[in-house]
């Protein structure tokens, strides 16, 4: 898995600009992913590559076109120091795995990473970094493959039940 390195505050306008929002097909969206900010990404990202970023990845607009465009480009996981809230949920819901890693900054562009979800570690650039576990309920959705798959099994929901995070 090859690393595409990004900085802090990568917003959803950068991931997929506003003028492409009439598109919903992930493959077609992927043709315009990071258009204008990192043009080589759409042409060169290969299935299984990962994005490694700094703080607040996915800030801004609630457009789900952003995780869909990344998925269309073959990206299955984004490793970042932190995520914006709506993007985090959208990613989980659409089956793109957002992983929080405090030391994401130490991972280098172009390096190969190995992610062990069970152990909660990433091996990259010759070192091991720990990743935060995906919180309980989100894990359930992620394991189901996204919110659609999770919700399809439901007839109704039980209101006002839950747990402490």
């Amino acid at each position: 898995m090859r690393v595409w390195k990004f900085g802090d505050d990568i917003d959803t306008d950068a991931i997929i600009p506003g003028r492409f929002l009439t598109i919903y097909d992930p493959d077609e969206l992927a043709r315009h992913v990071f258009e204008g900010t990192r043009d080589e990404f759409a042409a060169q990202a290969a299935p299984g590559d990962v994005i490694v970023a700094g703080r607040n990845f996915g800030c801004g607009s609630s457009r789900e076109h952003a995780p869909l465009a990344l998925k269309g480009a073959g990206i299955d996981m984004v490793i970042a120091r932190s995520f914006a809230r709506i993007f985090y949920r959208n990613a989980i819901n659409t089956g793109l795995l957002p992983l929080i890693c405090e030391e994401a900054d130490t991972i280098e562009e172009g390096s190969e990473v190995c992610v062990d979800l069970e152990e909660g570690v990433i091996e990259a650039t010759g070192r091991r970094c720990s990743i935060e576990p995906v919180p309980g309920f989100f894990r359930e959705i992620a394991d189901a493959g996204g919110l659609v798959a999770w919700a399809r099994t439901l007839e109704e929901v039980e209101l006002c039940t839950g747990s402490r995070s």
Partner: peptide, 20 residues
Amino acid sequence: TGIGSTDMGFVLRFGALYFR
């Protein structure tokens, strides 16, 4: 609060959503 389209699909279906 703002949500994504998949969360909204869930809301339209069930009238509820998971919140922290």
